[in-house]
Design a protein around this nucleic acid. Structure first.
Length: 423
DNA sequence: TCTGGGGTCCTAGGACCC
DNA sequence: TCTGGGGTCCTAGGACCC
């Protein structure tokens, strides 16, 4: 049967989340910043209209922000994650088949439904807005790439009411001709430059490009994308995402770090966070990478390095991973640099229940470890993250990230619950 | 004049996404 | 002063095996 995808994508998602519990932000330009309050990662239309670009450092726009009373927020992922699950739960009511693609996007399958698709998606949009307060746009097409493209057009043209169906659209060539290659899902900076050098600037030109040329310059990934533009679905997904193959925790620091002990504590904290994620997906890991880097925006000697260490048998036991991370850092640390970031990556990930035992050290009973980790995780999940911590991660955290403009965790913390007062 | 060939696995690096 | 974090997939090349 022919496939039909509807891509529901929240408009300026993080900024919209801030508006849900703060109606005075309605109509006002709102931006949300990355960790450390560094870059702009979300902007409402009002902010875009002021010329604020995405992924640019916020200090560049300080003047515009002051002049136009722009509301600025630190990223509040606890809030965004929670509102995301509410949006997804609402979308689920409308289709038997749905794939959550990112925190603010989901593909809904409309293939088996005998409906007026545009009207149906308008209803979806209205329901999400009513139930969660989040505005979404919906693009519909015979492939995911075309649904993405339709979504983009739906967002751009206010006359469409937030929904556009380009399935069987007689204007499709015109729409593709209006779309620049860099706005296609799967074309990034590098491919834009490459395609431009070969005279390919629009989605229509890319759709009509030569298969062999695409294959040799953009690998099979590029070829799949072109096929999708032609209306032949090649990108499928899963309803239930497979477990992660690598798990990473890394941060830039709120200030430069020079002392080895501070770096050790940061690496220890990132390791415990990785281990929590690992146990949450019921996996074990056998490889751990530690990386550190100096502040590349500073005009000083630079140093960055990483090291990967292996374990004889996979584990999800935090103390063992801490030990490994500590050893790794010791290997790569060099004094005398201003360190700005560090991270830990777990790989060699496999399911917890099927464990290859170490041949040289067989038969070790690790049930005590499993119980300990389960207890720590359950306390932290009930009482809040970081209730139980490892001493190796330190207490003062002088390197912790800056979040000067953090909104309350309206929906995930009892203390931050909004209160309605009678007047 | 002379070099084997075919297969798998792993890793690093490059592209992309939100 | 101030520049994010966490992922995916693909390919090429080297190690190793028979």
């Amino acid at each position: 049967m022919r496939k039909i995808f509807a891509l529901a994508d929240c408009n300026s998602f993080y900024a919209s989340c801030e508006r849900v519990f703060n109606p005075s932000l309605e109509g006002r330009p709102v931006i949300v910043l990355s960790n450390n309050d560094g870059c702009v990662i979300a902007r409402t239309n009002e902010a875009k209209a002021l010329g604020i670009a995405g992924f640019e450092p916020v200090f560049k726009y300080q003047q515009i922000i002051d002049q136009h009373n722009v509301a600025v927020f630190s990223a509040n992922f606890a809030l965004y994650g929670d509102l995301s699950s509410r949006v997804m739960a609402t979308l689920r009511q409308f289709t038997p088949e749905m794939e959550i693609y990112s925190i603010d996007e989901a593909f809904l399958s409309l293939a088996s439904m005998n409906i007026d698709r545009t009207a149906y998606c308008r209803k979806i949009k209205a329901t999400v807005s009513q139930w969660t307060g989040i505005p979404v746009s919906i693009g519909i097409g015979p492939t995911k790439t075309l649904a993405k493209l339709a979504n983009r057009l739906a967002k751009k043209d206010p006359g469409l009411g937030g929904v556009l169906d380009i399935t069987d659209n007689p204007q499709i060539d015109q729409l593709l001709a209006q779309t620049k290659v860099e706005d296609i899902w799967g074309v990034g900076r590098r491919y834009t430059a490459l395609l431009s050098r070969h005279g390919i600037q629009t989605a229509l030109q890319l759709r009509n490009a030569n298969d062999d040329w695409i294959r040799s310059h953009m690998t099979v990934v590029g070829l799949r994308m072109v096929e999708e533009l032609r209306g032949n679905p090649c990108i499928d997904g899963q309803e239930t995402p497979p477990p992660k193959k690598c798990i990473m925790t890394s941060r830039s620091f709120g200030r430069d770090v020079h002392v080895k002990e501070e770096l050790e504590q940061a690496v220890a904290e990132f390791t415990t966070m990785c281990a929590e994620k690992l146990r949450k997906q019921k996996s074990k890991a056998s490889l751990l990478t530690v990386f550190i880097g100096s502040n590349c925006f500073r005009d000083e000697p630079q140093y960055s390095n990483s090291i990967t260490l292996g374990l004889p048998e996979p584990t999800d036991y935090t103390p063992r991973l801490l030990e490994l991370a500590h050893r790794g850092l010791k290997n790569i640390f060099k004094p005398g640099y201003s360190y700005k970031r560090a991270g830990v990556l777990l790989a060699g990930i496999g399911p917890r229940d099927i464990t290859q035992l170490d041949m040289l050290e067989p038969g070790q009973e690790k049930s005590g470890e499993t119980g300990l980790m389960r207890a720590v995780d359950s306390i932290n999940s009930r009482m809040g993250r970081g209730t139980l911590k490892y001493a190796a991660a330190g207490i003062n955290r002088p390197w912790k990230m800056r979040q000067m403009m953090l909104s309350p965790r309206f929906t995930t913390s009892w203390e931050d619950l909004p209160v309605a007062k009678a007047v």
